[in-house]
Design a binder for these strands. Sequence first.
DNA 1: GTATGCTTTCGGC
DNA 2: TTACGGCCGAAAGCATAC
Length: 362
Amino acid sequence: MHIDLDYFFAQVEERENSSLKDKPVVVCVYSGRTEHSGAVSTANYIARKFGVKSGMPIMLAEKILSGKDAVFLAVNHELYDKVSDKVMGIINEFGDKFEQVSVDEAFIDVTKRLAGDFEKAEEFVAEVKKTIKSKERLTCSVGVGPNKLIAKMASSFKKPDGLTVVKPPDVKKFLNPMPVGKLYGIGEKTEEKMGKLGVKTIEDLARIEVSKLIEIFGKKLGTYFHLAANGIDNEPVQDRESAESLSRIATLKEDTRNLESMIPVLNRLSEEVKVRLDMQNLNCASVGVITVMEDLTLHSKSRTLDSPTEDIETIKSILIELLEMLLKDKTDLNIRRLGVKVSKLSEKGKQKPINEFFEVKS
DNA sequence: GTATGCTTTCGGC
DNA sequence: TTACGGCCGAAAGCATAC
């Protein structure tokens, strides 16, 4: 079962201030460059009806909604995180296993609770929704299916406040008519490639011989596409240990390609990332710099280390090197936004096992 | 030549 | 008129090993 909180940030804001409920509400990330510069994080369904979307420039959303009595708010992550924790706690209580995917999404394994009986799903979900509604005054959209893949695709089928139950015998019926690009794991490029093979729908994909898919996409991907198109997925619902990566990005006061002026920013971002690493007792084995140029194109450079580090000075000096490299690669444009990312995270004091050491040789 | 893993870019929210 | 965040995991592209 997959649970997705509806238009989460904006819904929390409506909850905090009921006078917002019948108005367009737009939750924004202000960059600080000018009073109105920034982008839309999310908007309620009234604002969406007028065409407001995530990622849109705030000034454009303002124009679309002018005269519509719209409310623009700055994101309040502290609040959303707190509310998220409470809701996730509730959801966790309803499953035998729990997996949080993001601030507003989670899977629970309810196989045992439902005794494998999908007829019980509707009533069960009603109970989950009722609890979240009464304790936190929030709605969500829910998908129930025989595995995570189907549950995830089902929860986005009807929203907001939706419920879609896909019983095992109905899996094919559910997937078949969808465009192949809707299948989890298939992006634009792969969809294009599929189109050239005459594959438009998930049904088309399911009909292709697995050997043919392996020939075209390689063993790993080919096998995955074949199984997914047939509704088969064996990924367990499991606790996520910690995030896979951690990053911090900020808009510069003005566009520049002057290294000296960016070093203090890079240092500050590194320190903020380091604090978050420490909070979770993590170190990192990969360090990267991210830039968004004045034309909003994104570029990045990263380096994998020989061994994980937690040393801030090491991280800072690598980042400066990477930024220098990036400036040499990309000689034409100024940098608008600058970021720091660490990945290949592991818990301090624990060495990640190298699988080959334990592999049984035959 | 192919499979794999690493790096870079994309896309959802 | 134009307008443009921050964060994450997924997808795509690329390099290397066999």
